[in-house]
Write a protein that binds this DNA or RNA. Structure first.
Length: 605
RNA sequence: GCCGAUGUAGCUCAAUUGGCAGAGCAACGCUCUUGUAAAGCGUAGGUUAUGGGUUCGAGUCCCAUCAUCGGCUCCA
């Protein structure tokens, strides 16, 4: 993976040969589709990470059978070695060529007048309009392409699935049919990619969640509302315990707040103005309206405001596992990754302007340190700032924004990290840093968010008394470190493929007596393990040893302790790891020491 | 929410053109007392997601609803 990255840095993907192959494969696919549906309309078809797609408007829905046919036809076209011919032409001429292709006409208008590209993004100056033609298919396209279709490896192309996609990604527009495909230089690369997809599927937290009995959803309870089972609960309790300890050490105070609050609170906070779509309908209690909380901040602010504060009290750091409920559209729910009720490991920092840089540095360092303990080593850091073209849509003073951005950058740089600056991605109330982690398959997941807030301190008229005896407004930072417990758990499951490190494993050791006469010894050993703080159980089912091992392997238990006549005679247990390694006889005490060390060091196994 | 697909036992899946809902695993019971990834035999388990409709007859065809899956949009 590291190598691939280096290679990418040498030649940017958009200029690589593979990019051209995929772009060309998209054209070939479009030709095959249009041959099948001569009146079909084509939209756009770019290369993407690992493949390509093309969007169509067709008279009927495509079936998997259609994909097979299209794929077969593509191979024939490829073998025809048709040259890709580029031609530049005027907008008027282009309109003639694509007279019966409304989406292309719209693209041409964009290119000509406003200077918008096919993704609807503004481009500086109106570009030259070009078309690429191969065999019978011609497409409005800036290229580049391979010389001829023969450069595409027909055995390294595969169509994957059909999906709906809005024209230009806007839900007000027509829904088109998108065909996703993948293309590589060699069959081996294609197979490796398909293997990667399979690997991702095997790690799917929804499947593992059922197999390991971690969590479920119930039709009776409702969609997007997760039920944590005892095994998932054990892991979560472990995470929360560790988190609590780190936060105590890190100078956070633990707070607890209710799940609902009066309408007025949400009016003041601004949520009813700009977050109403994400909130559930109000409850009426004694003629007062209450809302279920979509965020915890107003409550933490209420705690802050419950008394006068001196500058000497600052910084103050309030942390809470705050359970929030947000309306998510039904089609967006996805296992634990996207739910309607979730618990944020939320915290709010209140401080003076002078304290701000140190607070930011502290919270960033703190976050990375905790994420590393969960086995994440690589991070993408994104700095989201204002859209310079649209300064009107943000709260706060210009100077605040500059100060905040400088504080964020300085913290990132002090830690020697690289980051990506994203304009226009800031929340309206302030800039933010997001941390994405890379998992075991090198996929990235948004986890941590650290957000400045210039709005709430003002909206709630927060104050502290400064050294000068005058009231001042504190600065405020929101931060969710693990993000949501649900999503974080989902990511952990996929990262570890369900094989949690010893400190998190729901069952750390499975005691496996070979025959009934070994049960009592096993129960004695179990008592010792439990007394030592380990999570263990005895498999006293009627199964044979082989099946007991198989079951424990399936549950991904890190240690299996086999007990038979020999072990009892030696006062030992026979230690098997879930890797399959047989470490042989070990005394119970030695095993306890070893397991405790693995827990303490959070050993990644 | 939108486009498309799917929904049969706890799980994985069968069931010919519309013609008696079935298997493996899991569960439970009995026998065996076992040496590093599946012992044998037996028992039980279902209003085929839900509600309507067509039909002599519906798991199968039609309509609606719900949920899930692949995407789009949105996001912790």
């Amino acid at each position: 993976m590291g190598k691939a990255k280096e290679k990418q840095e040498e030649v940017p993907y958009a200029e690589s040969h593979l990019y051209k192959i995929r772009h060309s494969a998209a054209h070939v696919m479009a030709q095959a589709v249009i041959e099948m549906f001569p009146n079909g309309k084509v939209a756009i078809g770019p290369p993407i990470e690992d493949g390509f797609y093309y969007d169509f408007e067709l008279p009927r829905a495509l079936t998997p059978d259609d994909l097979d046919k299209i794929e077969k036809r593509m191979r024939k076209i490829i073998k025809g070695k048709y040259a890709f011919e580029r031609q530049e032409l005027s907008a008027d001429k282009a309109r003639e060529v694509f007279a019966d292709q409304p989406y292309k006409i719209e693209l041409i208008e964009g290119l000509e007048s406003g200077g918008y590209d096919e993704y609807g993004e503004k481009i500086e100056e109106a570009p030259v309009i070009s078309i690429y033609k191969h065999d019978t298919f011609e497409d409005l396209c800036r290229g580049p392409h391979v010389e001829n279709t023969g450069e595409i490896n027909p055995s390294a192309v595969k169509l994957l699935n059909v999906a709906g996609a809005y024209w230009r990604g806007d839900e007000k527009n027509t829904m088109l049919q998108r065909i996703y495909g993948t293309a590589w230089e060699s069959v081996e690369e294609l197979e490796a990619y398909l293997e990667r997809l399979k690997e991702a599927q095997e790690r799917d937290h929804r499947t593992l969640g059922r197999e390991l009995d971690l969590f479920s959803f119930s039709q009776d309870v409702g969609p997007g509302l997760a039920l944590w089972h005892p095994n998932g609960g054990r892991i979560r309790a472990q995470i929360e315990e560790y988190w609590s300890q780190r936060h105590r050490e890190g100078g956070y105070e633990r707070v607890y707040t209710p799940h609902i609050g009066k309408a007025n609170l949400w009016q003041t906070s601004g949520h009813l103005n700009w977050y109403k779509d994400g909130m559930y309908a109000p409850l009426t209690i004694e003629e007062q309206e209450y809302y279920i909380k979509p965020m915890n901040c107003p409550f933490h602010i209420a705690i802050f405001k419950s008394q006068m504060h001196s500058y000497r009290d600052l910084p103050m750091r309030f942390a809470e596992f705050g359970t929030v409920y947000r309306y998510e559209r039904s089609g967006t729910l996805h296992g634990l990754m996207r739910v309607r009720g979730f618990t944020q490991d939320d915290a709010h920092l209140f401080c003076t302007l002078e304290q701000m840089p140190e607070e930011i540095l502290g919270v960033l360092e703190f976050s990375l340190s905790i994420l590393r303990d969960f086995g994440f080593q690589e991070f993408d850091i994104e700095l989201s700032v204002r859209d310079p073209k649209n300064p009107g849509k943000y709260a706060g003073q210009d100077s605040d924004w500059k100060m905040a951005e400088a504080a964020l950058i300085s913290a990132i740089e002090k830690l020697g990290l690289s980051y990506r600056r994203v304009e226009g991605e800031a929340v309206f109330y302030g800039p933010k840093i997001d941390i994405k982690v890379h998992d075991a398959l090198n996929r990235t997941w948004q986890i941590t968010t650290i957000q400045f807030d210039f709005w709430l301190p003002e909206a709630f008229e927060m104050e502290f008394v400064g050294q000068d005896g005058e009231p001042h407004q504190p600065y405020m930072v929101h931060r969710a470190l693990l993000g949501s417990m649900e999503r974080f758990f989902g990511v952990l499951i996929e990262h570890y493929k369900g094989a949690f490190p010893v400190w998190l494993a729901p069952v750390q050791a499975e005691l496996i007596p070979i025959a009934d006469r070994h049960f009592d010894y096993a129960y004695d050993a179990l008592a010792k393990l439990k007394a030592a703080g380990l999570r263990a159980e005895v498999d006293d089912s009627g199964d044979r040893m082989g099946n007991k091992i198989r079951k424990a392997q399936g549950q991904k238990v890190p240690y299996m302790l086999v007990i038979g006549d020999r072990e009892i005679e030696e006062g030992a247990v026979s230690l098997r790891l879930r890797s399959g390694e047989d470490l042989g006889a070990t005394s119970v005490d030695d095993f306890i020491a070893m397991a405790q060390e693995a827990v303490k060091s959070k050993a990644q196994v």
